[in-house]
Write a protein that binds this DNA or RNA. Structure first.
Length: 671
DNA sequence: GGTAACTGGGTTTTT
DNA sequence: CCCAGTTACC
């Protein structure tokens, strides 16, 4: 898999320039498939070889998977495999969490602080919304998840709420006052209960760096900081990077502004070009040779690639030959699902393993019909993105219980756990929280007060739960705690869910994964910040002989590649998403997303257009909207495609044309 | 007054 | 599939 000849084997001139660059600020503008991962890892390997201590190199990536991958490769290339574990790396959020834990006290945080995921944050918003009596009005308040999005957008773009509402959430403006009020109490409530949401991890890291003493200490931890996917950082992350590397010394960023697809999370690709412009003495290296795709795929990609970006890049292919991408016109969505399955099987017959193929979708539910079709034909697949294991109710119950062991004042965790008991709903749970919280929530008298607030039916179970928590808390460190939590949750889950057996099976696997952790709190933060996509992931890496098609959202496919790529649902309203059709900025991001999708393909790319799509709003009648195709398939793009029609695969039986007289008689049934 | 069970309508993308 | 609103039961 790797070249054993050394870190410089097979690098081209531009890549080599980036690898050999000294410690002045370096911006690598890397088009899709130009070997940026290779370049980054080679650079790390070279730094190690030059004698930089591995723990003084920090590699910030977009997913943990990318980080692990790169660190392992760098260690291999440098021949310093033994040092690999000492390299620092991960996502911004994961690294922030690790660093914050080392200085929780000076930051004013409780030692066992909780990490709220966005769903927890939404639960908290929901609670506050009720407390502020903002529900049940004539004009409905935005959904809790939307409130969290609004709050998060303000934080991540560092813009005032009025502006964020006006620009990004205009339909929420009537509630501006209430929303601002909610955001304010959201912040105080989190602080009070020792909870940090994802945004807080960045905020506290930045705050630590801004402190005179702590900040100096923190920025001196690293000699080199390398940031991948820089086009997708937000204002907070930019501040963090700038404090980590004063004057940009030792800083390397890699990115491509044509692949910026996280605007909705507060990212702005202009940070990439601004960095090059504002750092004195910075060097820019452009990587424009694509080593990934056959030329005909690149011809399409170059047409799709948005032109008005800050950094002009033109991809030159290095792989001649290959077929032109195919545009397959399908009858309707079910027809498209059949076509995808058929083309996957065709490629399979031609020697492509299933794992060499990916289906990339704009939104997770776009693969619903395709998944049905694959299942019906017994084609194994694995889905990335969309609803995750960690977001299922029973897993959240488990996580909440574990969180309580370290942070008994975590009211959101309590709220979940209490409602698992028979006869305890939102109102009772809230009354019990009130009984718990003015006191030490681990104290016996607090618990009896809480139990007293519950209906008689729940009291025995609640007492059991409280006792089990006491026992679990008394266990030292991580050992035994997950098992104790599982034992506690068992009867509750059994009572509360209809499909309890499946859920308990999940929890058993989760608990045994947790038992292997050295530090349960760190393990919990890890799975919260970078959750496993399925229970399968908990069992470790999949077997080599396991073969499955990958279904992924385009967002989750960023940075990855497959020999064969299928992109279904290329229809206005789906891809591009109808949510984005209204604004130029939205459409521009959709186009970049399409660019990302097409450039994932190495050898073969198939685009699917269902010609008839069910109408979104009124599906009651059988009316279909005629949506010929996505606006991205303009004349220029079509010129790069081979257009094919879906072969009719189920010829209808010829209609009977003779005469007959038939009656259907049911009256005998009702006597 | 509060819970649980049911129904109908809506659904981007993720650390 | 999740959420909000409704209704029947405690």
């Amino acid at each position: 898999m790797f070249d054993a000849e050394g870190w410089d084997a097979g690098l081209d001139d531009a890549q080599l320039e980036a690898v050999l660059h000294d410690d002045g600020p370096l911006v690598v503008a890397a088009g899709a498939g130009t070997g940026k991962t290779r370049t980054l890892t080679a650079r790390v390997a070279r730094l190690l070889e030059r004698g930089t201590a591995p723990e003084r190199i920090l590699l910030l990536t977009f997913t943990r998977r990318a980080a692990d991958d790169m660190l392992a490769r760098a260690a291999f290339l440098s021949g310093h495999t033994r040092d690999a574990r000492r390299l620092r790396g991960g996502t911004f959020h994961a690294v922030a969490h690790q660093l914050i834990c080392t200085c929780a006290e000076p930051l004013g945080l409780p030692i066992g602080f909780s990490v709220l995921d966005p769903a927890d944050a939404a639960d908290l918003m929901d609670l506050l919304r009720e407390e502020h009596r903002l529900t049940g009005n004539e004009v409905r308040m935005p959904r809790p998840a939307t409130l969290v999005d609004i709050y998060s957008r303000c934080v991540n773009t560092q813009r005032p709420i009025r502006e964020v509402l006006a620009v990004d959430f205009p339909w929420c403006e009537p509630h501006a006052e209430g929303i601002a009020e909610l955001c304010k109490s959201y912040v105080t409530r989190k602080r009070k209960h020792g909870q940090l949401d994802f945004d807080d991890l960045l905020l506290y890291w930045r705050a630590a760096l801004a402190d005179k003493h702590l900040g100096t200490h923190m920025s001196e931890l690293f000699d080199f900081v390398l940031v991948d996917e820089y086009q997708d950082v937000n204002a907070l992350q930019v501040d963090i990077i700038r404090s980590l590397c004063p004057q940009g010394r030792g800083l390397t960023v890699v990115g491509d502004d044509a692949q910026a697809v996280y605007g909705f999370r507060g990212a702005d690709a202009r940070h990439l070009t601004e960095l090059a412009a504002t750092l004195p003495g910075s060097t820019m290296v452009k990587l424009e040779t694509n080593f990934r795709s056959f030329q005909p795929i690149l011809d399409l990609a170059n047409v799709v690639r948005p032109t008005q970006t800050g950094v002009e890049l033109v991809l030159h292919g290095s792989r001649r030959g290959g077929r032109r991408p195919v545009l397959l016109r399908c009858h309707d969505a079910p027809g498209e699902a059949r076509a995808v399955a058929e083309r996957i099987l065709t490629a399979h017959e031609q020697g492509r393993a299933l794992r060499d193929q990916a289906i990339l979708v704009r939104a997770a539910h776009h693969s619903d019909l395709i998944e049905l079709e694959l299942s019906a034909r017994r084609i194994p697949y694995r889905k990335y993105g969309g609803l995750r294991f960690i977001e299922t109710a029973h897993v959240k119950d488990f996580v909440a219980a574990v969180r309580l062991l370290d942070n008994p004042s975590d009211d959101i965790a309590w709220f979940r756990l209490l409602r698992l008991h028979d006869g305890v709903g939102p109102a009772r749970a809230k009354a019990m929280l009130a009984a718990l919280h003015p006191q030490d929530p681990t104290a016996g008298h607090a618990w009896s007060a809480a139990v007293a607030a519950a209906p008689a039916t729940a009291r025995v179970a609640l007492t059991d739960t409280f006792n089990a928590l006491t026992v679990a808390r008394s266990l030292p460190g991580a050992k035994g705690r997950p098992g104790a939590v599982l034992a506690m949750l068992g009867p509750l889950v059994e009572n509360h869910y209809t499909d309890a057996q499946v859920r308990l099976g999940d929890l058993e696997r989760l608990a045994s994964a947790a038992e292997t952790a050295e530090d349960l709190g760190a393990w919990l933060a890890e799975v919260t910040l970078d959750p496993p996509v399925s229970t399968g992931d908990l069992a470790g890496p999949p077997h080599l002989d396991e073969d499955y098609v990958v279904i992924s959202t385009v967002h989750s496919a960023k940075g990855l590649e497959w020999p064969v790529v299928h992109i279904p649902h290329l229809v206005d309203g789906a891809f591009p998403s109808d949510m984005a059709l209204g604004s130029a900025a939205g459409l521009a991001e959709e186009r970049r997303l399409f660019y990302v999708a097409t450039t994932r393909a190495r050898d073969q790319l198939i685009l699917y257009v269902p010609l008839r799509m069910p109408h979104r709003r009124r599906a009651l009648d059988d009316r279909h909207s005629l949506a010929p195709a996505s606006r991205f398939l303009d004349e220029a793009a079509l010129g790069m495609l081979d257009i094919e029609e879906q072969t009719p695969d189920r010829p209808k039986a010829p209609a009977y044309s003779g005469s007959a007289r038939v009656t259907v008689e049911l009256d005998g049934l009702w006597r």
